[in-house]
């Protein structure tokens, strides 16, 4: 799942960057790109009402990006939705840990001598 992690990280980084530069429209759009991936990865069942309200608010903000009231509403949604993204990152990390354990301990102290092998004369 390295690909999904990379995609989500990239989107979140871009979102943070745009939010800092005060171009909120782009920032929010990038954030919900990562959120889309996270929702599908965690298989999060979102309430249909919340989805509908968020879509409505997004629509209004898309048409009038300078409206501060709508922006604060969207920020509230983002604050709540961040949890799902964190859940997705945790899930990826746990999956990766399981794989590492399967490979075994690579730097065991007894295995060090194996590297210095003497060839027979």
């Amino acid at each position: 799942m390295r690909l999904l992690q990379q995609m989500m990280e990239k989107k979140i980084n871009l979102s943070n960057e745009f939010m800092l530069k005060k171009s909120y429209l782009r920032g929010i759009s990038h954030f919900y790109g990562a959120y889309n991936l996270a929702v599908s990865l965690v298989d999060f069942n979102e309430d249909f009402k919340i989805t509908k309200i968020r879509q409505k608010v997004w629509k209004r903000f898309f048409l009038s990006s300078s409206n501060k009231k709508i922006l604060s509403k969207l920020m509230d949604f983002m604050r709540k939705d961040r949890k799902v993204i964190n859940m997705a990152f945790n899930q990826i990390e746990e999956q990766d840990k399981d794989k590492e354990e399967g490979l075994g301990d690579l730097d065991r102290p007894l295995a060090i001598g194996v590297v210095s092998y003497d060839f027979p004369e």
């Binding site: 959120y35 991936l37 929702v39 979102e46």
Partner: peptide, 13 residues
């Protein structure tokens, strides 16, 4: 285009 596209992202994953 809806902000949340669960079906498409589900298929991608």
């Amino acid at each position: 285009v809806s902000l949340i596209q669960k079906d498409i992202y589900d298929l991608f994953i």
